[in-house]
């Protein structure tokens, strides 16, 4: 949203000179309840960052502030000029055909061709003329991805985009997102509650707690990452501990 950068309290969403995100002192209060308090966040150009945290810790709030969807967030926010959001629900307009959904809000000529190109990237070019209501959950979410891609975002904001998908579809969608990220290299902020998802996809996993980034885990594992990579298993245990899950899951399970 074109928020004027004059008043001190609303976030000044100025296009950053470089592709990347810088957040300083982000604060958001809902009815007296402080959700984000002096949160700082940096995302390098082309970096894939996952944001984890318990329910209600403010993950989505942070993402929404970056996406310019929260006019009441206070603090300094610098994001690239072009960003796109994929939500947990596909949020496609049921009254517009798939390709019209993809190009929603896109200016310029030959929208149809651009929509087709984006849909091809997610493997749905042949559904361009379908109504969204006829798509499966996984397909809808891929269209939502295409809708983000067509904007050639420098920052891609993913708000639990796989949360509503079944296990198999989710795996495929994760691979797709990884492939698209490697192809286009936007900065990515992925909000998720799935520790493994974060470790499979992200360069860095951040843990949100008490209104700010409480812990950082650098995931330095070559891609594609096998789930049983020892480093990944170690990080998983650490991250789960950070989330307050100290379950000795590996023991007593196979017995």
């Amino acid at each position: 949203m074109p928020t004027p950068a004059l008043s001190p309290s609303p976030p000044a969403r100025e296009p950053a000179a470089h592709d990347g995100v810088r957040v300083h002192g982000l604060r958001r209060v809902f009815d007296g309840r402080v959700v984000l308090d002096d949160a700082d966040l940096t995302i390098a150009p082309g970096e894939f960052v996952a944001l984890l945290g318990p329910s209600g810790s403010g993950k989505s709030t942070l993402l929404r502030a970056l996406g310019g969807l929260d006019p009441e967030a206070e603090g300094h926010i610098e994001v690239p000029g072009r960003s796109a959001v994929v939500f947990q629900e596909h949020r496609l307009l049921p009254w517009e055909r798939v390709w019209r959904n993809v190009t929603l809000g896109v200016r310029g000529g030959d929208l149809r061709a651009r929509a087709t190109a984006a849909l091809e990237e997610v493997g749905l070019a042949e559904r361009a003329d379908a109504w969204p209501g006829t798509l499966s959950g996984g397909e809808s979410q891929r269209v939502a991805l295409a809708r983000a891609l067509v904007r050639t975002p420098q920052l891609l904001l993913l708000d639990e985009p796989f949360g509503a998908l079944d296990a198999l579809t989710r795996l495929k969608a994760q691979h797709l997102v990884e492939a698209l990220w490697e192809e286009h290299r936007p900065s990515v902020l992925l909000v998720t509650h799935d520790v493994e998802e974060a470790l499979l996809l992200a360069d860095r996993a951040l843990l949100l707690g008490d209104g700010a980034i409480a812990a950082e885990f650098v995931v330095d594992i070559p891609r594609p990452r096998p789930l049983d990579h020892p480093e990944l298993v170690r990080l998983r245990t650490e991250l789960l501990a950070g989330l307050g899950v100290h379950a000795p899951a590996e023991h007593g399970r196979t017995a």
Binding site: G133, S136, L165, T169, L227, A249
Partner: peptide, 30 residues
């Protein structure tokens, strides 16, 4: 669910009874 190493083992040993338990939430039929 083949999403954790521990469970992959379980799945390998027995028929994957857990995976189909979660069906993809389809949009309401036309």
């Amino acid at each position: 669910m083949p999403s954790s190493p521990a469970e992959t083992l379980v799945v390998g040993a027995a028929p994957p009874v857990r995976a189909p338990a979660r069906t993809e939430p389809r949009p309401p039929p036309p």
